[in-house]
Design a protein around this nucleic acid. Structure first.
Lengths: 190, 190
DNA sequence: GTCTATATAGTGATAGAC
DNA sequence: GTCTATCACTATATAGAC
């Protein structure tokens, strides 16, 4: 792996763990086993390296989600599989956590991949919910866009609850509650 | 207002805006109009002052929630009023944002008020949901504890979505989706 | 491309005068 | 109780040798 790649990967890890404000260029270099000069040769500075790291994390998160969302099965199956898939809950969401970082939100370039990722995810879930309505899995009164946003919010909020309590159970509890509500929003097929 | 109070209030503001990692003692002192010596006279250090600030923010959040949650009306009315009440969405949740801070989560003392606040809120909502079931507003198959966690998660996740998109609309969308799901979980009274 | 040296500012705290 | 001085350390770079 190239030095540039190692720097990006180290930045991904540290941004996930400590956020942008809590991560220093020096810490990234040390984890990557690279010197100062090396980092400033490949990137213009902290923000530039962070942008590369955020873009890569966003792409990885999208790919991971698509794995469950594009699987065969009913809409309910796919959404349920996505919600229940194995996660490192107490580490939080590598993308969602960035939305709490003041320097990320303040910089349009750094915020963009975060924004894009959630827009994509909401859109993807809305498609699946619409598909589910067509198949009679869900009530037609259910608004796909609103419900998609709710699903993503439960995931992101589930991480918050779990980390606040230092217990992954709280994530699972919130997901269970959501699946209970979705199950009761059945359509004509039930 | 005493110097100690001004320091706590400044710390509350800065913790809300920039988190624990992103807030320096110096910045707190300047916002409070106090010198170094003053801060270290009243508090043993940054963590001690932050703890006082977090406790105060937690108490304020609880009081604000209780205002809607203890209002007269049906369970649905009270939950809906709480979810739809005016919020400074783009600033995020002063307590929830702390769950993303590595130094808060790593320190049991600093995490405690955050944990307590969410535990209280989930418990309070579960009570109201149980009450709603008794009144026939909600299906008895709905698990109050799970659903309460889901409601809190939608709120916390709503902040994440709004900040990621720099638009409060995304918070409202997630809430609307949740109210749609809750409305479809009606019990015998519907 | 990578290294070391150096620079400027900020961090988190202590010391001691007033 | 509050102030200023000082401290060791870190943050985020730039410069220039190799």
């Amino acid at each position: 792996m190239s030095t540039s790649d190692r720097l990006i990967e180290s930045a991904q890890d540290l941004l996930w763990e400590r956020g942008y404000v809590g991560t220093s260029p020096k810490a990234i270099q040390q984890r990557a086993g690279a010197g100062q000069g090396s980092m400033y040769h490949h990137f213009t500075g902290k923000a530039d390296l962070a942008l590369a790291a955020i873009r890569r994390s966003a792409a990885e998160m999208r790919a991971a989600a698509e794995e469950q969302l594009s699987a065969p099965g009913s809409a309910t199956d796919r959404i349920s599989a996505y919600l229940r898939r194995e996660r490192d809950v107490l580490r939080g969401c590598p993308i969602g956590r960035l939305s709490q970082d003041p320097d990320i939100v303040a910089d349009a370039h750094l915020r963009q991949p975060v924004d894009d990722t959630f827009a994509w995810l909401r859109g993807r879930l809305a498609e699946i919910l619409t598909d589910g309505q067509a198949r009679g899995e869900f009530d037609h009164a259910l608004d796909p866009d609103d419900t998609a946003a709710t699903i993503v919010a439960v995931l992101q909020g589930g991480y918050v609850l779990a980390r606040a309590a230092d217990s992954a159970d709280h994530f699972d509890t919130a997901i269970r509650g959501l699946l209970g509500l979705l199950g009761r929003a059945g359509g004509s097929a039930r």
